[in-house]
């Protein structure tokens, strides 16, 4: 039985004689797509906008399948500074999904921001950058960047701004957003803790008369604690999340970046 099958990887499957070899008669230009150009490199990201700051975060694990490729692979990138070290950047992009696409996306956006600065002599606003990112993603609508992007910065009034995207460029400005592998774990936590969903004032009424807890802007320390808690939780329940937490705080003074440890198991 085993002799029926060739060890030659070219002819994987039953052997055949020279005469009944499969004929290649696909039309000109057609391709056989056995190569899958995408993988999921796991990881998770998170962004929360405050009154005068934005906090962005992501874990630093890079996986493929059950393997950990790297324990220190940042997912947050400063965008649009004048120099390669991005010292004077004011915008942060986070990407999660297929790492190579994420990297390509980040470099595209950064090059565009640098060209904008060269042509106009001023940095791009987050709003403009957000719109441009959407266009970049949509331009590859039929061979998408498999990356879930979140863009963070400060808007024209100095308020925290978070824009979230799907891989083909749909986007909206939000108060907070989680992306990537553990998005479904973190997002409900954020709904409850940032937007106070399902929080009611005790004894304020029965049923529909129950009054919602009033929303208020969170302080920076509150947000940072939330981010850490969110990731500690995600690490516990998702195998593709862990190793390290990269966190960036965008304020009017610039961008502060910290790396914190997460569980490595």
């Amino acid at each position: 039985m085993a002799a029926m099958f060739s060890q030659n990887p070219l002819m994987n499957g039953p052997n055949y004689s020279v005469n009944d070899a499969p004929r290649v008669n696909a039309p000109e230009g057609a391709r056989e797509h056995r190569f899958d150009p995408y993988t999921d490199n796991g990881g998770s990201t998170l962004a929360i906008a405050g009154a005068d700051f934005t906090i962005m975060a992501g874990d630093t694990r890079l996986t493929s399948g059950y393997s950990i490729n790297s324990r220190h692979h940042p997912k947050l990138f400063k965008i649009g500074g004048t120099t390669a070290d991005q010292k004077d950047a004011t915008i942060v992009l986070s990407v999660v999904g297929f790492a190579a696409d994420g990297e390509a996306l980040k470099e595209r956006l950064d090059a565009i921001c640098k060209m904008y600065r060269y042509r106009h002599g001023k940095p791009m606003s987050v709003k403009a950058c957000a719109q441009r990112l959407s266009t970049i993603l949509y331009q590859k609508r039929f061979f998408p960047y498999y990356a879930y992007a979140i863009l963070g910065g400060l808007d024209e009034e100095g308020k925290g701004a978070v824009y979230s995207y799907d891989p083909v460029g749909s986007y909206e400005r939000e108060q907070c957003r989680a992306g990537g592998a553990a998005a479904s774990l973190i997002m409900p936590f954020l709904d409850n803790q940032v937007n106070f969903k399902n929080q009611y004032i005790p004894n304020s009424g029965e049923g529909h008369a129950l009054q919602e807890r009033e929303r208020r802007p969170l302080t920076r320390t509150e947000v940072e604690t939330l981010v850490k808690d969110a990731f500690d939780g995600a690490v516990e329940r998702h195998i593709e999340v862990g190793d390290g937490l990269q966190m960036m705080a965008i304020t009017r003074h610039g961008i502060e970046e910290v790396f914190l440890p997460l569980k490595k198991d």
Binding site: R23, A26, E32
Partner: peptide
């Protein structure tokens, strides 16, 4: 029998490595 010319890949689609050999 006659040689199977399909091995010579004349015409046909543009070839690309679809799996390592």
């Amino acid at each position: 029998g006659a040689y199977d010319a399909s091995y010579l890949q004349s015409g046909g689609p543009k070839t690309a490595t679809q799996s390592p050999i």
